[in-house]
Each structure stands twice: as C-alpha cells, then as structure tokens.
Amino acid sequence: MDYLIHILILIGIYVMLSSSLNLVAGYTGMLSIAHAAFYGVGAYTVALMSLNLHTPFLVNLVCAIIICGIFGAVVGIPSLRIKDDYFIIAAFAFQIIAFSVMNNWVSFTKGPMGLPGIPQPNLFGWKISSYPDFLLLTVIMCVVCLLICWRITHSPYGRVLQAIREDETFALSLGKNVAGYKISVFVLGAMLTALPGALYTTYISYIDPSSFTVDESIFIISIMIIGGAGRLWGPVLGAVVLVMLPELLRFVGMPNSIAANMRQIFYGGALVVCMLWRPQGLVGKADVLRK
C-alpha cells in the first residue's frame, strides 16, 4: 500500500511542478528550462531553515515562497529582454549556474554531500509523519495549486497571458503592459514551485543537488508537453502517465543485463513517437504547438 501512496505523492509533486510551469510556458509561451532550479531553491530554503533555525514548517514554506519569488524576479526581469529560442538558452544557463552554486557552495549547502535528517512537518499540531498523512498534505497542496492556476487562467489577467502567447505585438497594440504581465506570471510560476519543493524535502527527508538538475527540468517540461500544454488538466494527466509508466515497466520481465538500457530506450522512443504523432499532448489544443 505504501508503494502506491508513494507513487501518488510523487505524482502530486510533479503535478504542482508542471502546472506552475504550465502557467509560464503553456499559457504565456515562455518555455523555461530553469524550473528545477526554482524547485531546488524552494527545497533548499525549507531544508536549511528547518535544520539550522528549527523554524516551524509553515514559516519555512512562506519563506520558501517569498525567496522563490525573489529569484523568479531576478531571473525573469533580465531574461525577458531576450526573445524566443534565446530565452530557452538563457533559462538553461540560469539552471546550470543554480546547480553549480548548490553543488559548489559547500559551506552553505553542504554541496554534493546533501542534507540528511530533515525533520517532518508539523501543521498546527498535526504531526505529518506517516504515508497517508503525507498523501493528505500532497492532495491539499495540489488542490491549492490547481485552484490558483484555474483562478488565474480564467481571469481577465489569464486571457491577456494567452493573448501574449498567441501574438505578442497584438497584445502590445491593445495597450497591455506585456513586460509586466510576463514578469508577474514568471514570478508566480517560481513561487508555486516552493510548494513541491517543501513537500519533497520533508517527504524524502534528504536532499542533494542531483535532484535539481537540467534533466529534472526537462522531465517537468516533458510532463507538461505530453500531458498537453495550455490546459489545466494537461500537466495533471502528464504527471500521472509519465510517473506511472516507468513504474509499470518494473513488472515487465526482462533480463537484468539489458532491462535498464531497454527502459531508457523505451522512454526516449516514446518521447519521439509522441512528438511525431501527437505533439499537442494528450489533452492539449493542437494549435498551441503550431507555428
């Protein structure tokens, strides 16, 4: 049973990560490869605060949200001067630098040794320690996260975002402050990653920089794309499928010597096939990914 709950919690973490990315990339059209870096900032904030300052979980979470927001602004404001393909590369560069700092600033983050023994959260006297407790926390966080996303995308603000994705010049000509919209949604997306960051840190109770690499960013993007960018349920479905699929493959019997590589080949192959046949993802609108 714990195994199933564990899978559900992982799915929850990725639902939040890819939904927050969806706001930035799916709705506004800024594909950010720096998402795992924000996720890492949130996770490290919670971990370092609870280990060094022994502050309660809620305080850590709020601080993590604020710090992620600040980082979002620091990254977002200059990057917005950069257009299209180059934005992807700029975000990529931030991702690499953030990882490098987490990995090499040993006196502060303990570097590659990681931070073990992160205490479990305590919410208003509710001590979260068992698997069902964590599942409940995950569900609460996911609901909050999805509600925020839903509220944003179904507001006038959200409609402007989509207009920017479709045609930035047109949005400008309507007198919209495009830069302001872009920065605010970028900061918002970064702030939302603090939720999964805090959850992951306290759930696994051990973090090291290897969980926040470029590969992780690419995985989050894949979830969003395969699920369907620009749709509320796209990332949810993507997370379910992409987290569960490799787990299902555990049951497929293969000789050990080739199983590992075969699984990777299968995974990469699935990505290629999906891009060839259904690039808009499982529930996406076809036009989001067309020129």
Binding site: L31, D84, D85, I88, I218, I221, S222, I225, I258, N261, M262, Q264, I265, Y267, G268, G269, A270, L271, V272, M275, L276, P279, L289, R290, K291
Partner: peptide
C-alpha cells in the same frame, strides 16, 4: 516534423528523445 510545421520545442523534445535512445543503444 518539418512537414507538419511543428514548433521548435517539439523538435527539441524529439531530439532529446533521440539522444536518450541512441546513447542507451551505445551503452547496451
């Protein structure tokens, strides 16, 4: 993909998929 006028991100993801497949073929 080009025939279908896919967005750059589709190309990038497809090429990442290709990278994963071929790199693992070499390991295998």
């Amino acid at each position: 993909l080009r025939k279908r006028e896919a967005k750059p991100i589709v190309f990038i993801l497809a090429s990442l998929g290709l990278y994963t497949v071929l790199q693992n073929v070499i390991s295998l």
